[in-house]
Nucleic acid binder design. Structure first.
Length: 504
RNA sequence: GACCUGGUAGCUCAGCUGGUAGAGCAACGCCCUUUUAAGGCGUGGGCCCUGGGUUCGAAUCCCAGCCAGGUCACCA
């Protein structure tokens, strides 16, 4: 890093002092009253209308085309851009032409925040424009923004595309790439849609600890921290599952939380160290009931964002319209490999996996083998939203066993665009079974599995008081946002994705 | 973690098998009162990611490193 100023930065600082010398405050603090947005004017103003004849707008100056005593410029506010027409004798009506000749033409720079008053009209070229009668500097910009231009056919010139700069300086990305803002607005629509759906059903949005003395509810390596006063080790949560279930024990019928979770693992275009899940727990329900909820809720999300159940994701047009296809894991494997593994024992499964060229090794148990075959042969082919049910018990230490087959659990995932978008099950509420499942996890931990769960004595204590039959759900909000907004990388649905610190 | 690709002006990029660093936009100066991605003419602007090496000479070749993207591996 060098903190040498560039030529353009020096010029802008110079302009700043010239503005101050004119007696103009470059960073005024009073409210600037705005009575319209650029979008509103462009959408509604018609030639000859008496509306928008006294507008007040504020935003950034994004381009300037000076033609002597008159100029065209563009103002960008949070809703878009509109053209401004600035004539010398309007903003500097008397003898003193400083406002136009110096301030507007020389001392303002692209990116400066200005407030303008004026009236809307159409130019001879048919462009909706605001004729400026008053102009005020609201905040001076000292660094040059990238100048991105677009023509009528939507071709972009000199786009600001370098991913590293876009993510590290998201503020610049947002100013200059309007489609980026849209992604994040859609992400928020998704959250609002879910809140609306769940609140309407009477479920309570809650908050549970992020700093936890024990981490649980998922298989992952945690971040570790330390509390000075208590002098104790704390973990950043990897999930909030065990806390929400304690609330069900406590007597709530339905609780949910948008949970920022943290996992100390590798990064990829599907993994950021901190990410968001929504988890939902509803008493007296099971996973079948929860499947219906997911279908209905995700269908609503698509409609709230796009106005239709169909969403274009890369090459694929995905339709979230209910009902979605449902397979048991065995059925899915049979569908995509033609092999029925439902009656197979471990050795036969192992041979089958090898025959299918699935990468397996001797350490894998029956459940893991099935999961590997599914992951390798089926998941990638599931583009339209599909439920997969009945997972092996070994993979699911917090889920309830199936009545008719204790090797399986009442669990489902929804797969969409070849990726898991949710995970849900009938929650295990038998405290004795839960204890033995935790103990099995401890064994895995002793054998070196760094992601094995730890035994949470207080959680078991809560189950011993009694938890009603409960259905639980987790949805990866970032992954779902990627699908709903058609983005290839998780970094594109997070404002500030994690980046390695720059040296220097 | 492995491999591949990249890092040059504020932005987007050229710069071949080594010979003093280039374009467009942006900036600066001058001319222009309804123009439009880019009006005309002119002018500046670079630790060429960092550190070593080879060479008379390195943006370019070699080695090491940093950062990023992609593919794969790992992974609820």
């Amino acid at each position: 890093m060098h903190n040498q100023l560039s030529e353009q930065e020096i010029i802008r600082r110079d302009n700043l002092t010239k503005i101050i010398n004119l007696g103009i405050e470059p960073y005024p603090s009073e409210t600037y009253e705005v009575n319209a947005t650029t979008k509103e004017i462009k959408d509604n103003f018609k030639e000859g209308d008496t509306t928008y004849q006294s507008v007040s707008l504020a935003g950034r100056l994004m381009s300037r085309r000076i033609m002597g005593k008159a100029s065209f410029a563009e103002l960008q506010d949070s809703t878009g851009r509109i053209q401004l027409y600035v004539s010398r004798d309007d903003i500097a009506p008397g003898e003193d032409k400083t406002m136009y000749n110096d301030l507007f033409k020389k001392f303002l720079d692209l990116g400066d925040f200005i407030g303008i008053k004026g009236y809307a009209f159409y130019t001879q070229m048919g462009e909706c424009t605001v004729h400026v009668t008053e102009l005020k500097l609201l905040s001076k910009s000292l660094k040059p923004l990238p100048v991105v231009k677009r023509d009528e056919e939507g071709h972009t010139f000199d786009a600001f595309t370098d991913p590293e700069q876009r993510y590290r300086q998201r503020y610049v990305d947002l100013v200059v790439n309007p489609e980026v803002k849209k992604v994040f607005e859609q992400r928020t629509t998704m959250y609002n849609s879910i809140r609306e759906y769940l609140n309407q059903r009477g479920y309570l949005e809650v908050e549970t600890p992020i700093l936890q003395p024990l981490y649980g509810g998922a298989a992952a390596r945690p971040f570790v921290t330390h509390h000075n006063t208590l002098d104790m080790k704390l973990y950043l949560r990897i999930a909030n599952e065990l806390y929400l279930k304690r609330l069900i024990v406590g007597g709530f019928d339905g609780v949910y939380e948008f949970s920022k979770d943290f996992r100390n693992e590798g990064m990829s275009r599907f993994h950021n160290p901190e990410f968001t899940q929504i988890e939902l727990y509803v008493a007296y329900k099971d996973y079948e009931w929860m499947m219906n909820l997911v279908e209905e809720m995700v269908e609503k999300i698509a409609i709230d964002i796009h106005g239709t159940t169909e969403v274009q994701v890369g090459e694929n047009l995905i339709n979230f319209k209910r009902p979605w296809k449902r397979y048991t894991m065995y059925e899915a494997i049979q569908e995509f490999t033609g092999i029925d593994i439902s009656e197979m024992e471990e050795s036969e499964l192992f041979q089958t996996a090898k025959k299918l060229h699935v990468d397996v090794d001797e350490s894998m148990g029956k459940g893991k083998l099935i999961d590997e075959i599914f992951g390798e042969k089926c998941e990638g082919k599931l583009i339209q939203p599909t439920f997969i049910t009945d997972y092996p018990v070994e993979m699911s230490p917090l889920a309830k066993r199936k009545k008719d087959n204790p090797a399986l659990v009442e669990r489902f995932e929804a797969i969409c665009n070849a990726k898991e978008i949710c995970n849900a099950f009938s929650e295990l509420n038998d405290p004795l079974d839960q204890r033995s499942r935790f103990e099995a996890q401890l064994e895995l931990g002793k054998r070196g599995d760094e992601e094995a769960m730890v035994l949470d004595e207080d959680f078991l204590n809560s189950l011993e008081y009694g938890m009603p039959p409960t259905a639980g759900l987790g949805i990866g909000m970032d992954r779902l946002a990627m699908i709903m907004t058609n983005q290839k990388s998780i970094q594109d649905v997070l404002f500030f994705p994690q980046m390695k610190a720059k040296k220097g």
